[in-house]
Design a protein around this nucleic acid. Structure first.
Lengths: 194, 194
DNA sequence: GGACACATGTAACAAGTTACATGATTGG
DNA sequence: CCAATCATGTAACTTGTTACATGTGTCC
């Protein structure tokens, strides 16, 4: 299961279920999401398998924290997963389905509305990603200065960035095509204006 | 649930659970996948809700077929789903996670291998999509000739196409960067050759 | 003392996967 | 008669979601 391996990946740095939950709600949500109610039992399972170690710590504020960390065996398992791939397939892209069936709507105007809303969601995401990129480059100066591990984070970011840019370009093109179609329909409905 | 609405979308044209299963294993798999064992019970549920109608037909070859079709209420529900969107978020992109954690591997060489394999998978998919695009354009002559519904199918195809192209461009760029990193490492390990 | 952030969890449910059962018809 | 394709389904399981329970410490 991918989520297990994502946890192994994150827990190269020690962390808690709570903090992982935050991570999935923030940065990681762009490629995976998990609720804490799913994370906590999984952490226990991975510990039982010997892939994670756990120590308890008092919290500054709130109850005790259970700090997990990937073990040597856990890292070996993560390596196996990384080399066994690529993990592509069975993606569920509801927005593509939505586009696919947009023809069910009564008019290009309604479809336009949907695509425009897609565009605004992805615009926001692009801004978010660009801010992260800027931060990385500001710290490193140049990409070549990044240690290998950070270069891989950066590569994943660029992948996301390129996907969003392509989506936005598609939105712009599709909006234009739909607008032309609206004009065409208006001309047919009201040929006097020609 | 999205799968319900995808079924409502497909069943504007009458079809059977069996044939839908084929569709999910072929064309539709690029944005959604479903097993027949999931489809059959769902079809019954949607029929109970009045969103699908069902008639039985003898099969040319094999047992009787249950042919489903979206009802007026089903179409209304589909329209609601289309207008209530965009359906973005909670995507699970294991390949991005894989890229993100690639730094766990021992060397850029191993990472290169992974990215090269991603590239070859996406290359194949691009060829597949391009063939579909060519077919559509050959039949219509020009995109403007497509009826609205087909234009939406085509728009979804172009979205997929643009996503794959961007992935391939990212692969090429990332492979190049990793190769430079390999050379850099070799130079550090073996400075005599400088 | 009430709201809020910290922190871990369980229970019930929905969605998705894997494995198997059943039976008809066709072609070799 | 055997394998393949057609065709519908169930059972058991895993994965993911929603809702709730519990308790600590801080700030107002």
């Amino acid at each position: 299961m991918s989520l297990e391996h994502i946890l192994l990946g994150y827990l190269r740095e020690p962390s808690t279920g709570y903090d992982l939950g935050k991570e999935f709600a923030e940065g990681a949500r762009h490629f995976w999401f998990a609720e804490r109610s799913q994370i906590y039992p999984l952490l226990k399972r991975l510990e039982r398998r010997g892939w994670l170690s756990c120590r308890e710590e008092p919290s500054e504020r709130g109850p005790r924290r259970k700090v997990y960390e990937t073990t040597r065996e856990g890292r070996a398992e993560l390596r196996r997963w990384l080399l066994d791939g690529p993990h592509i397939g069975r993606e569920r892209l509801a927005y593509v389905a939505q586009t696919f069936f947009l023809g069910e709507l009564d008019s290009p105007e309604e479809a336009l509305d949907v695509v425009r809303r897609m565009r605004s969601v992805w615009r926001l995401r692009l801004v978010e990603f660009e801010a992260v990129e800027e931060e990385i480059l500001a710290q490193a100066g140049d990409e070549a200065n990044l240690p290998f591990e950070d270069a891989c984070y950066y590569a994943a970011l660029r992948l996301g960035l390129s996907q969003i840019s392509a989506k936005l370009a598609w939105c712009d093109e599709t909006i234009e095509r739909l607008e032309r179609r609206c004009e065409g329909e208006a001309a047919v409905a009201n040929p006097v204006e020609e």
